[in-house]
């Protein structure tokens, strides 16, 4: 199964990865090879087989909703790339400059 360059570009966009043009081309070649390899699964008849997402038969695990100490603000912000007072500083989420 081979991917087109446009498909690779679209996946990179979905994955929020900015890649250089030559990286996209290399990725197109490598991803196609990997998808060719995993395509062998199509040979297997899995009709009626229940998908297994997790090796343990775990269900939801509940606990009481209790107050407990949490990370102090300063510690939580220590690794922040940018900070503004007691907050993480991030680029504007909504464009407020336009109409």
């Amino acid at each position: 199964m081979s991917l087109t360059l446009d498909q690779v570009r679209k996946v990179a966009q979905l994955a929020r990865l900015e890649l250089a043009e030559d990286d996209l081309a290399r990725m197109q070649h490598q991803l196609s090879a990997i998808l060719d390899y995993v395509a062998q699964l199509q040979q297997l008849d899995t009709e009626g087989v229940e998908p297994l997402a997790h090796p343990l038969p775990v269900q939801n695990v509940f606990r009481d909703d209790e107050l407990a100490p949490s990370l102090p603000v300063d510690e939580a912000l220590k690794n922040a790339p940018a900070r503004s007072g007691d907050y993480f500083a991030v680029p504007a989420v909504f464009d407020t400059t336009g109409e």
């Binding site: 699964l41 199509q42 297997l44 899995t46 087989v49 229940e50 998908p51 297994l52 090796p55």
Partner: peptide, 14 residues
Amino acid sequence: AYYVKALKVRRLVK
């Protein structure tokens, strides 16, 4: 075609 198929094969491997 890919992910769910792989999870079914995972069941068979187990």
